[in-house]
């Protein structure tokens, strides 16, 4: 049976903990070893299929795959036939012909990894799709939280910013809920989706009220293109109401950590002093990204059968299911 990692919801609590534990061991291996490369995935091929630029995420996956001795093919939309009007399905069939064992896909459309999973035999790993999900980011965030705070159960995590357009927020809410953390979303109402009330998270518009109770504060990037679309009046006002400045950081508990999935808009959602301060896990997040992605690749590809992930999305959905029953 083939398995994929398309959504953080694909992971049960045991799955998620297995990924984190495995990542922890792999991080320890990397720290100890004089030779960083493990033979585990020798002979396997991992394709990085990036329709959207993301040097950081692509490099992280590439390094993870190479540390496990997998062969890596980078297939970026630019300079390939993808930009010449070839469809995702054509690309998928090409990858099939190349015999890839896993496809790591980054795409600007939500759901593209789900589509891809229907068309390829190998495992599909979602490396960020539109405004949908980014499950490995959530895993590395959870890993970082556990590393710094020693637990996830009962942890109070505040996610601040453009929740509406954030795949990081969606995956984090799902995964942290699975792992027993309590998530509060803080954003201007314009940057929260209609329907957020059904998410397993609290919602607040008041950052100052939430900060003192938080064990983790995760600041989301505010993208430039949102500024012209009347989601908020001005960067200055956004920053004043929802930015993590030095004054607000002072209201945090001593051991509260500050996270950011990057890339940051310094001075907008986060003050440089906070981003570079001792609370910040931003550098650790990058390092942990490689370990977590190694764990995911190992658990999906390391054996005859994947140990984690979803298979439900892959088969043809049940079209005979009646919605009027």
């Amino acid at each position: 049976m083939k398995r994929h990692l398309l959504s953080a919801a694909d992971l049960s609590r045991d799955d998620a903990l297995l990924v984190l534990d495995t990542a922890e061991e792999l991080a320890a291996v990397a720290e100890r070893a004089t030779v960083k490369k493990l033979p585990t995935l020798r002979g396997r091929t991992v394709v990085n299929l990036f329709f959207e630029d993301s040097t950081r995420t692509r490099t992280s996956f590439e390094l993870a795959a190479k540390r496990l001795s997998a062969d890596v093919i980078n297939f970026s939309a630019k300079g390939s036939s993808v930009s010449k009007g070839e469809t995702l399905k054509d690309t998928a069939l090409t990858l099939e012909a190349m015999g890839s064992d896993a496809v790591v896909i980054r795409h600007s459309w939500s759901g593209a990894p789900v589509n891809l999973a229907r068309w390829v035999r190998g495992s599909v790993i979602n490396a960020g799709d539109g405004t949908h999900e980014h499950p490995t980011q959530a895993l590395l965030d959870a890993f970082t939280m556990r590393q710094r705070l020693g637990r996830l159960e009962g942890l109070r995590v505040t996610i601040v910013g453009d929740v509406l357009h954030s795949r990081v927020a969606r995956s984090n809410v799902l995964l942290l809920h699975t792992l027993g953390a309590e998530v509060t979303l803080v954003a201007p109402p314009t940057l929260l989706p209609v329907g957020v009330e059904a998410w397993p998270a609290e919602v607040s518009y008041d950052l100052d009220a939430v900060l003192p109770k938080s064990d983790v504060v995760m600041m989301l990037r505010v993208q430039r293109e949102r500024m012209g679309a009347a989601y908020f009046p001005s960067p200055r006002e956004y920053s004043r109401r929802y930015g993590l400045d030095v004054r607000r950081a002072a209201a945090l508990k001593d051991d509260t950590i500050v996270m950011h999935p990057g890339p940051m808009v310094r001075g907008m959602e986060i003050a440089p002093e906070v981003a570079d301060g001792p609370r910040s896990t931003i550098v650790a997040q990058v390092a942990n990204g490689v370990s977590v992605r190694m764990a995911v690749l190992y658990l999906l590809l390391g054996g005859s059968e994947p140990a984690i992930g979803a298979s439900a999305h892959t088969g043809d959905h049940d079209r005979t299911e009646r919605t009027d029953a």
Binding site: S110, R170, V194, G195
Partner: peptide
């Protein structure tokens, strides 16, 4: 636009 669009990350048609 509703609960499903919020989860699926697809633009809402209210």
């Amino acid at each position: 636009e509703g609960v499903n669009s919020s989860k699926l990350g697809l633009g809402g048609w209210p």
